[in-house]
Design a protein around this nucleic acid. Structure first.
Length: 476
RNA sequence: GGCCCCAUCGUCUAACGGUUAGGACACCAGGUUUUCAUCCUGGCAAUAGGAGUUCGAUUCUCCUUGGGGUCACCA
């Protein structure tokens, strides 16, 4: 019976991307490895920034990548509700406790006053601390003013499971707001109350919070809570390597990767490697291996740049490992419209010849159109082909006629096609790059395709010959 | 600006204080007697700078530089 409990506590203010999902993944891995529980909590205390569908996006994104939770908004349990806006009574309760013990007070200052004080501090190049301006006789808190913590400034030392020994001075401690004037708690207050009530043992979060930890420690003391273990994750940077990954900088949502046909296993593997490794050169990790091998002590301290090309490469590796049947069932949503009327056997044949070049499922649309419909003849393919430049139309036509003559007696098995095509090379004294490029263009109307014999075998005799005829006519 | 954190190839990263500083992506070249792709082989490419400790620093300490975070009634 393990007591490890971790949580992922996103705000429904936007779609999940690789950076946020990594935080979720690491917290989930810590819980799974210890046979503990993983809690999903929605932090929607900022009503203005919450967006429609935010919670659904979180749930769909985590579900896609394969992260499940033991307790959450759609999985009620002993410590619920798991949505902060439904827990206001709990924050009130602890706010009153702090007031009673003299550790919280109403803030009656106006925005203008605060702005002015901050501005002055900036002018004199000094940090602004509200506690320097604590009112001497604050009024009784009536719930319509912000409630502030009466902090107890002092230095702290603590251990961060990723960053190691940390320390701060008393100047890091201030009287921060616990409850906003709209009655909702701030993150700073709500997450501490919730983590305590939900018995969270390890708080794992990204590094923008690290400078707030001393204030959190101060609040834990004021509330009489034992602080949980903390782990701070390094930032995930965007492709410029300069900023934190964010929607604004064009980071793709997790669901966009689903829609382009990135496999969840590959995405999980890739995200796990963003700041973590097991100390060996291993780079392919199954979910089970990640759970078994993951360790916060091996999480990188520096930021990692998110590179989509590395994700796509990894996805290709995962695709090539699939059996044909698995691949077939996974790509069912990615076929072009023209494929609708074709049966599963035919589609599997198509897949078998494109599997090794597929990097993500939505690529199927570009890679396979000629398997499903006759494309119009495009002379540019011949004109712009570097191998066919030296031949004139009559030569091309002659080659296609010879090809047709040879193939009419083929059974169109890959073996026989290969044999006949190779004979043709000798007979016509042509280089493969020339003759096969021509036949490829005739049968596919594409600049590239899977192997020629493979492709024609899938297309079948009737269609292949008909397309060669079409090309011969077009050359006349 | 104050405070905090960080620093190995372009990118992700490995290296009990002793290695020709390793792997992967990307890129380049060659090969797999057919394009594209896959696969294989090879190539390019890094310890930010300066002191110190040490017989010996990528590794430990300090300084500089650079990067990031934070200083909200956002999280």
């Amino acid at each position: 019976m393990s007591s490890v409990r971790t949580r992922f506590a996103p705000s429904p203010t936007g779609a999940l991307h690789a950076g946020t999902v990594r935080t979720a993944l690491f917290a989930w891995l810590v819980a799974k490895k210890a046979n503990g529980q993983f809690v999903l909590r929605i932090e929607d205390t900022d009503q203005a920034r919450s967006i429609e569908g935010g919670v659904k996006n979180i749930i769909d994104s985590l579900s896609f990548i394969g992260i499940d939770w033991d307790e959450g908004p759609n999985k009620p349990s002993d410590f619920g509700p798991y949505v902060q806006s439904e827990r206001l009574d709990k924050y009130q309760e602890f706010a009153q406790k702090l007031i009673k013990s003299g550790r919280a007070y109403a803030d009656v200052s106006t925005k203008d006053e605060l702005d002015k004080l901050r501005e002055n501090a900036k002018q004199s190049k000094k940090p602004f601390l509200f506690r320097d301006y604590r009112p001497e006789n604050p009024p009784v808190w009536n719930g319509s003013q912000p409630l502030r913590l009466m902090s107890n400034p002092k230095p702290y030392e603590w251990n961060d499971l990723v960053m190691g020994k940390m320390k701060s001075g008393a100047e890091a401690i201030d009287d921060f707001i616990l409850i906003k004037s709209d009655g909702f708690p701030t993150y700073n207050f709500a997450h501490i109350v919730d983590d305590f009530l939900m018995k969270v043992t390890h708080v794992i979060r990204s590094q923008e919070f690290i400078s707030s930890v001393p204030r959190f420690l101060n609040l834990y003391e004021a509330l009489g809570f034992e602080a949980p273990k903390m782990a701070t994750l390094p930032p995930v940077l965007d492709t410029t390597g300069k900023r934190k990954l964010s929607k604004r900088e064009g980071a793709k949502q997790v669901l966009e990767y689903r829609d382009m046909g990135i496999m969840p296993e590959a995405l999980m593997n890739f995200v796990a490697l963003l700041g973590w490794n097991d100390g060996t050169t291993q780079e392919i990790f199954s979910k089970e291996e990640l759970i078994q091998k993951f360790d916060l002590s091996r999480v990188q301290k520096g930021g990692a740049q998110f590179r989509e090309d590395q994700l796509i490469f990894l996805n290709g590796v995962y695709i090539r490992k699939l059996s044909l049947d698995e691949l077939h069932s996974r790509v069912s949503d990615f076929w072009p419209e023209s494929a609708t009327e074709f049966d599963d056997d035919y589609k599997k044949k198509v897949l078998s010849v494109i599997q090794e070049r597929l990097k993500y499922f939505s690529e199927i649309t570009e890679l396979t159109p000629f398997f499903f419909k006759d494309l119009p003849v495009d002379m540019k393919l011949i004109d712009e082909n570097k191998f066919l430049k030296s031949l004139d139309k009559s030569q091309l036509k002659e080659l296609l006629n010879k090809t047709k003559a040879s193939l009419v007696s083929s059974d169109f098995s890959v073996e026989d096609l290969t044999y006949k095509l190779n004979n043709l090379l000798t007979e016509q004294d042509q280089k493969p790059a020339v003759l096969f490029s021509l036949i490829r263009i005739a049968t596919t109307q594409a600049a590239s395709s899977p192997g020629l014999a493979d492709t024609m075998s899938v297309l079948g005799k009737e269609k292949s010959i008909a397309r060669i005829d079409t090309m011969i006519n077009a050359l006349s």
